[in-house]
């Protein structure tokens, strides 16, 4: 749901430019951090943290999730739950190695 008056729309477009600048700056930061050659743990956390900020900016402003209908939030919450399950499933393979009977 976006604004409807000319002024509201023009204000939104100025916001899009600011989001673009932020995304470009965060891309520079992402690449810059990779040149520090951090150990894999902190490197993954930092890279995913920056990517999450960038993704949130795209979703909130370009995809207008900041002001959407409840139904879309419901669909996305369900999607996030299943996505987390999908990402956690591989980690369960570690339990096989950790289990005392394994």
């Amino acid at each position: 749901m976006a604004g409807h008056t000319v002024e509201e729309i023009k204000k939104e477009t100025r916001g899009y430019i600011l989001v673009f600048v932020a995304l470009a700056a965060l891309t520079v930061v992402t690449v810059g951090v990779s040149y520090l050659h951090l150990s894999i743990g902190p490197a993954i956390v930092l890279a995913l943290f920056i990517a999450t900020i960038k993704g949130s900016l795209v979703a909130c402003f370009f995809m207008h999730l900041i002001s959407e209908r409840k139904l879309i939030y419901s669909v996305l919450i369900l999607t996030v739950v299943f996505f987390i399950v999908l990402m956690v499933v591989p980690l369960s393979s570690f339990l096989d190695h950790l289990a005392p009977w394994g």
Binding site: T30, V31, V33, S34, I40, A43, I44, A47, L48, I50, A51, K54, G55, V58, A59, F62
Partner: peptide, 15 residues
């Protein structure tokens, strides 16, 4: 599609 690339880029290229 842009959002997917935002995650693909660091995961594949930078880590």
């Amino acid at each position: 599609v842009d959002l997917v690339w935002i995650f693909l880029f660091p995961i594949l290229y930078l880590l």
